[in-house]
Computed example of a mutant assay.
Amino acid sequence: MIETSDENTPFTPVTVLGLGPMGRALAAAFLKARHPVTVWNRTPGKAGDLLDRGAVAADSVQDAVEAGEVIIACLIDYDAVRATLEPSQAGWENRRLVNLTSGEPAQARQMSLWASSHGIDYLDGAILTPAPAIGTPSATVLFSGARDVYESAQETMAAMGGTAVHLGDEPGRAAAYEVALLDIFATSVNGIVHAFALASAEGIEPERFATFATQIGGLLPEMITRFARQIQTGRYPGDRSTIASAASGITHIINTATIHGIDVGMLTAAKGIIDQAVGDGYGPEGLARLTTVLHRAGRP
């Protein structure tokens, strides 16, 4: 857990590049912690009330870089970060670039190499909480990159609130965590809306269905912890559920959804992995075993 700046904390000039909802939330948090804040956005007029609260709008990216000691990039993607910073490679002495843009691990590594080639101290980060949580105890931010760069910016970044975790020197690690966690979210949302579509097609009222669906969701935290332990040890006991039983269950879902004309693309892909696992002799084992099957299926 980290605390926001108090009266004994030096107030570092911060620049925020990008004023989408998250960028504005970041700028507001740094202002609240009494850091001097400069903001820049490609499209003018996105600062909202930040200027009334003390932020300064830079006329150019170069001016924005020169105004801050910690430069926060929070743009649409890594290509936008590169395109924004390419014309402004001077004036980076004693400054750190903290990239909080969502992206892929390979992009983070490439961005780190680009920054290093231009003499820019670089830290990559992933924000795991929505914009309203920034500056509150519920915020969670992951960082990866050189430890000395992280430590030099750590006190300033405390203004984001909540929990900050440095995952190591490998610059793509924070993005790797983010995409893996987004994998859970994306496939879970797909499962939820697909289940509601199937339930509705069978005449089940959404609110009544939700009562039971939330109980299914409550099983997931323990399952995630158990799967992690099994994957770590390489042992996949089928004492609770087996891959063979999953093959039967997913077949019932696909057949029922198909009758109602509901798309089964994701379910069919999942069944393909399950069938492969059964064919490999893993039918009596637990569902966490599917992780190793997926690894092998993804290799060329």
Rank of each mutant, 00 (worst) to 15 (best):
E178Y: 12
L97R: 06
A67L: 10
V37E: 04
A174H: 05
L123D: 05
P10I: 05
R34F: 07
G234H: 08
E207W: 12
N41T: 06
F143D: 07
Q107T: 05
A33Q: 12
I259F: 14
Q110Y: 09
M266W: 10
A64W: 07
Q107N: 09
G217C: 13
K32L: 01
A176P: 01
L219G: 11
T12N: 02
F196Y: 13
E86Q: 10
V193H: 11
T136F: 00
P130S: 15
A247N: 12
N255A: 12
L167H: 07
A27H: 09
A33L: 06
A29Y: 00
A47N: 10
V141W: 04
C74R: 11
L267M: 12
F212W: 14
G45C: 12
A80K: 03
I253M: 11
A228W: 01
A33R: 06
L100S: 14
G218W: 13
V70A: 01
I224L: 15
N41Y: 10
G265E: 13
L142C: 11
P10A: 08
W40H: 09
E207T: 09
M157E: 05
G217W: 09
T251L: 09
M157S: 00
G283N: 08
A180I: 05
I259S: 13
Q110K: 12
A57R: 11
G203A: 05
P13K: 05
Y282A: 12
I2Y: 03
T225P: 01
E207M: 09
V65L: 01
G265K: 09
N190Y: 13
R299L: 11
I250A: 08
V81W: 07
W40D: 02
M111S: 10
E151V: 06
V70T: 15
E93V: 10
E170I: 00
I216Y: 14
T156Y: 01
V37P: 00
C74W: 01
S60D: 09
T140I: 13
E69C: 11
T251K: 12
A257W: 08
A29G: 05
G217A: 15
L31D: 00
R147H: 09
Q154N: 08
E222C: 05
A25Q: 06
A269W: 10
D183P: 02
T211A: 15
A90H: 09
L75K: 14
L97D: 02
D124V: 00
A55D: 06
P130H: 13
T233Y: 00
I184D: 06
P206Q: 13
E222R: 06
P206S: 10
S245Q: 10
P284D: 14
R240N: 04
S5N: 03
A180F: 05
T291S: 12
Q107P: 02
R82W: 14
Y282F: 15
L142P: 04
A210D: 13
L113S: 13
F196S: 03
R299H: 13
Y282K: 11
G279C: 12
Y236L: 02
L50I: 08
G279N: 15
L51W: 10
H118G: 02
M160P: 01
R95C: 00
T101D: 12
T211R: 15
I254Y: 11
